[in-house]
C-alpha cells in the first residue's frame, strides 16, 4: 500500500446508465473470466460473490411516473486522497498488506493468499464491493476444466473483489513488450465486463489521458460518481440524463 502518486496512468470506467438494459452480461462475463465461485443456491445475496453487482433502482413513484434503471457496480478502485488517510478506505485498514493500490495504474488489488479473512476491508468499504468466501469454492463437473488459467481461484475464509481484470493488463503489457512498445494503445486492455456489454454502456481507459474516450465521457455534464461526499474519489463514473438517478447516487441532507 502506498500513497496517491499519479504517474500518467489511472485506469477508470464510465458506465452509461441510460444505455444499460440490466441484461447482466457484464456480471456473467466477470464471473466466468475471474473464476468467481458460486453455489447451487444463490438466493442469499449477502453471502454470494458478485464482483460486478447490478443494482436495481427505481424512482419510487407510481405509474405513470414510475421509472427504473440498473446500476452495474464493479469495485470503484477509489483514488482517495482523504486527509489524513490518503488511501482507498479499504487498503489502509488491512493489517497484513493484503490489499493495495498500484500507483502505476491506480488499480486496487487484493492478494488472497496473504488475506487472513478479518473482513475489516469489507466493513470499511461503503460500496459493498468486497466479498468474503463463506464456503469452499467448488465447480461442478466439467466446469472446473473451464476455469480461466490466468486467474487463481480463492479459498474459503478470504476476501476477494473486482480487479478490473488486472491479468488482462499483464497480458496486454507482455504483448506490447514483444512488439517493442512500452505504452499500451487505447482499448488494448479492457476488462471482461466492458467487452461483454451488448449495449456498449461501459467504457474503460486511462482517465488521465485527456484524449481518451473514458476521460471525455467522465468530464461530461451528466457524469457523476457514487457517494462523492465521502471523498473516496471512485474511478468509476456513471452517466445519466435522468435527474432522479443522479439524486440517488449520493446522500444529500
Amino acid at each position: 500500500m502506498s500513497g496517491n502518486k499519479s504517474n500518467g496512468v489511472r485506469y477508470g470506467m464510465v458506465i452509461d446508465l441510460d444505455k444499460c438494459t440490466g441484461c447482466m452480461a457484464c456480471s456473467v462475463a466477470c464471473q466466468q473470466e475471474n473464476n468467481v465461485s458460486f453455489r447451487e443456491d444463490e438466493t442469499d445475496k449477502l453471502r454470494s460473490i458478485t464482483w460486478l453487482e447490478v443494482f436495481y433502482l427505481d424512482n419510487g413513484k407510481p405509474y405513470p411516473e414510475h421509472r427504473r434503471a440498473y446500476m452495474p457496480r464493479p469495485c470503484l478502485h477509489c483514488d482517495s486522497s482523504h486527509h489524513p488517510y490518503p488511501y482507498p478506505p479499504c487498503t489502509f485498514v488491512c493489517p497484513v498488506n493484503a490489499t493495495h493500490r498500484d500507483e502505476e495504474t491506480g488499480l486496487v488489488n487484493h492478494i488472497p493468499v496473504r488475506c487472513i479473512g478479518c473482513r475489516y476491508c469489507i466493513s470499511a468499504c461503503s460500496y459493498h464491493a468486497r466479498y468474503f468466501n463463506w464456503w469452499d469454492p467448488k465447480w461442478p463437473e466439467p466446469m472446473e476444466k473451464m476455469l480461466t488459467p490466468d486467474v487463481s481461484t480463492r479459498m474459503r475464509g478470504v476476501v476477494e473483489k473486482c480487479t478490473m481484470c488486472v491479468h488482462r493488463l499483464q497480458l496486454a503489457k507482455e504483448r506490447a513488450f514483444m512488439e517493442g512498445r512500452r505504452e499500451l494503445h487505447e482499448g488494448e486492455y479492457v476488462p471482461a465486463c466492458v467487452e461483454a456489454c451488448p449495449a456498449r454502456a461501459m467504457t474503460f481507459g486511462n482517465l488521465l489521458d485527456p484524449h481518451s474516450e473514458v476521460a471525455t465521457l467522465a468530464r461530461g455534464p451528466h457524469a457523476f460518481r457514487l457517494l462523492e461526499r465521502l471523498a473516496t474519489e471512485p474511478k468509476v463514473y456513471y452517466l445519466s440524463t435522468q435527474k432522479w438517478i443522479r439524486k440517488l447516487a449520493d446522500n444529500v441532507m
Binding site: 500500500m1 489502509f92 493489517p95 497484513v96 498488506n97 496473504r114 488475506c115 487472513i116 478479518c118 475464509g157
Partner: peptide, 22 residues
C-alpha cells in the same frame, strides 16, 4: 473470527503500519 486462523501470524510477518488493527 478470522477466516484463515492458520494465517494469524501474518499480522506480525506482513504488518501494515497504517492499519489500526496492526
Amino acid at each position: 473470527e478470522i477466516g484463515q486462523p492458520i494465517r494469524g501470524w501474518f499480522s506480525f510477518w506482513h504488518p501494515n503500519v497504517h492499519s489500526m488493527l496492526t
